[in-house]
């Protein structure tokens, strides 16, 4: 890692590696949630956890390099995630109206 000089000391109290480990752990928890949970909303929350671990990682890198582009990217991720939530919840509501459940195990119409 190249260390530019302008990093505030307070940031360096926690090494970059710790941020990396924390966000990787959050990301893996998110992946496990997506792969094992059966409730559409919980899967959705796990995806959001993955996105937020990315945000954390980007901010950590960004402040260690004192480079604002990483933080700009975080804004983009938050805006797009909000749009995705709007569409995703609409889809889940539509399914709930038709089937009265959001358990993905009951969605077995498509097979072959």
């Amino acid at each position: 890692m190249i260390q530019p000089p302008a990093i505030p000391e307070i940031i360096q109290l926690i090494p970059l590696k710790s941020y990396l480990i924390l966000s990787t752990a959050l990301f893996v928890i998110g992946i496990i949630g997506v792969l094992t949970r059966r409730n559409a909303i919980v899967i959705f929350m796990s995806v959001e956890l993955m996105l937020n671990s990315v945000n954390l990682l980007l901010i950590a890198f960004s402040s260690y390099r004192s480079d604002p582009t990483g933080q700009v990217f975080v804004f983009f991720i938050m805006a797009v995630a909000a749009a995705e939530v709007a569409v995703g919840l609409a889809i889940i509501v539509m399914i709930y109206r038709n089937t009265r459940t959001i358990d993905i195990n009951f969605l077995k119409k498509l097979k072959g």
Binding site: A40, M50, S53, L57, E84, G88, N98, L110
Partner: peptide
């Protein structure tokens, strides 16, 4: 409906993975 939910969940999942890659 089912196709939309599957596409959405898998698509968002893939986006998450891609974003983590971009962050790295």
């Amino acid at each position: 409906n089912e196709a939309a939910l599957k596409y959405f969940l898998m698509g968002a999942f893939a986006t998450g993975i891609m974003l983590f890659g971009i962050a790295l």
